[in-house]
Each structure stands twice: as structure tokens, then as C-alpha cells.
Design a protein around this nucleic acid. Structure first.
Length: 277
DNA sequence: GCGACAG
DNA sequence: ATCTTGTCGC
């Protein structure tokens, strides 16, 4: 693992945390509100791995969606035998190779729809060495990536970015849908952001209202479900957040959500053994 | 020893 | 990550 940490630190020297994109970001005025648009963004990718019931057989998936319609225009899967276990902080060493292969394959067979940015199921710079799976994949493939996590990975080491900190931030800072809170450590470094999407908040009020009546005088703590966005590669955190929010029909942005759904479906369709009645 | 632990 | 039924609500 020390070796892996060295590899991460080494690769991190190639990491670009500013916008280096093949499309532009424009800010338009509408009723005095600033609206961000990505007029030249056409193809956005999502990658994920789904597992069968053992720890070694997995299906890797690469999905390409049209932007801004979010319609799926490409999907590909590959069966993978995994040798390494999952170790927090070293996810890339388990998952990056099959994802990289899928990307290379797409670039070779279908370069015209190769995504201009890829959303990854896992963190980028929100990582102990600032180099999670999203950054790892981005650097190796030399493609813009965004990291999106469903669970918080604590950053210790004096930064004091703890779960308690995040829960407090979510409760106090994320009031309305689309709100984001920057995860800044004691050093001043920003590791990522936590944000919540519109609809959840409406449900929350009602759910809390009901719980209040049932004398379950609990707070919003367990009901607010944010996502964690961080820079993967060749993109800024601001742009990452804006793109992710524009891709969120539900809690999870559509590219990775579709990658998840479709890879699970693939497993169902290919694991339906003969023991059926 | 204890807590934390992306997927 | 994965195993899982119903249930509540728009």
C-alpha cells in the first residue's frame, strides 16, 4: 500500500485542476439571475462497476449520454475478474484498468461520440492524497473527469474534514435544492463539495412534518441525502458542480446512474442460470 | 488501542 | 459494492 500511495503521488503531478475542456462555459442573465450554460457540450460519459455475489466477478460499464437531453446513445460492458480487494483510499487499483480499457475501445471504434467529460462513480480530489479514482482515470486516459461519491470519505491529517463536520454543514448550509457547500480543510485547501438536488428538500419538509407529529422529534440529520462532488482531471470544481447538477434528474447524476442501472441489468441477463423453473 | 473505511 | 418487501407520496 505504501507503493500504491507513491504511485498516486507520482501520477498526481500530472493532475490538472482547472478547466481544460473542449467546450465553453457561458454565463447568461435571466431575470437578474446568472445561468450557466455549456452550449458546446454534446457527449458526457459515465462509468461504473457492478459486482456479482462474489468479490471477484464484476461488470464494468461505459455509458455515453447526449447533452443536454441526457438520452443514452452508447453503452458497453466488459466482464472483469478482480484480484485485488477493495481498500478505502486505493479504489483505483481495483477498478481503473477495466474502465480505461472501455475508454480506449470507444476511442478506437467510435471516436466521434467520445465523451467530452466523464463522471466517475468515486471521488477525485476528495481523497487523502488528493488523487481518487476519478483523478486516476482522468490522468491515465488524459480526459476530463468529475468525481461523484454517494458516501463521504473523511479527510483527516489535520484537515478536520470529518463526518460530523459534513453533517453539520449539510444541515446548516444546504437549505434549498442546488445549494452547495465547499469542503475546506483547516489548511484552507478545498477538497470538494457537498450538494443536494432540488426535489429532495420538498420531500424532506413533509417527512419531517410527519415525524414531528409522531413525536419522533428527530432532526433532518438522517433524511438529507447529499452527494459529494470533486475535481477529477482537467476541470475546475465550479464547473464540475455545475455540470453534475445539470445532469441530476435524481440524486445521482444521470451518467453514473445509467452506468449503474445498466451494468446491474447486464449481470441479471447474463447470470440467469439454468436453475429456473 | 480506537475510529474510519469512496466502491 | 450487495442482499431485499412493502409503503408512502406526487
Amino acid at each position: 500500500m505504501e507503493e500504491w500511495a507513491r504511485v498516486q503521488t507520482e501520477l498526481k503531478s500530472k493532475l490538472i485542476e482547472t478547466d481544460d475542456l473542449k467546450f465553453t462555459k457561458t454565463i447568461k442573465e435571466e431575470n437578474g439571475e446568472q445561468i450557466v450554460e455549456f452550449d458546446e457540450l454534446s457527449y458526457i460519459g459515465g462509468v461504473d462497476l457492478s459486482f456479482e455475489n462474489n468479490e471477484e466477478n464484476a461488470i464494468a460499464s461505459l455509458i455515453v449520454l447526449k447533452y443536454p437531453s441526457l438520452e443514452v446513445i452508447y453503452e458497453n460492458f466488459s466482464s472483469v475478474k478482480l484480484s485485488l480487494p477493495y481498500i478505502a483510499g486505493f479504489l483505483a487499483f481495483r477498478e481503473v484498468t477495466p474502465l480505461l480499457d472501455l475508454l480506449r475501445n470507444l476511442k478506437k471504434t467510435n471516436p466521434d461520440i467520445f465523451p467530452q467529460v466523464i463522471i466517475v462513480d468515486g471521488n477525485g480530489t476528495l481523497h487523502p492524497r488528493r488523487f481518487g479514482l476519478a483523478s486516476h482515470l482522468g490522468v491515465l486516459a488524459n480526459v476530463p473527469t468529475i468525481g461523484v461519491g454517494k458516501n463521504f470519505l473523511q479527510i483527516d491529517d489535520g484537515e478536520n474534514l470529518t463526518m460530523a463536520h459534513v453533517k453539520m454543514a449539510v444541515k446548516e448550509k444546504l437549505k434549498k435544492g442546488g445549494d452547495t457547500y465547499l469542503l475546506q480543510g483547516q489548511s484552507g485547501v478545498i477538497w470538494g463539495a457537498v450538494c443536494i438536488k432540488k426535489r429532495a428538500q420538498i420531500y424532506l419538509r413533509l417527512i419531517n412534518f410527519i415525524f414531528y407529529f409522531l413525536k419522533a422529534v428527530r432532526s433532518l440529520d438522517n433524511t438529507t441525502n447529499p452527494i459529494f462532488v470533486s475535481v477529477g482531471h482537467r476541470i475546475s470544481l465550479d464547473t464540475s458542480i455545475q455540470i453534475v447538477l445539470k445532469c441530476c434528474r435524481y440524486r445521482i447524476p444521470e451518467p453514473t446512474r445509467q452506468a449503474d442501472i445498466r451494468s446491474r441489468e447486464f449481470i441479471r441477463n447474463h447470470t440467469s442460470d439454468q436453475s429456473v423453473q
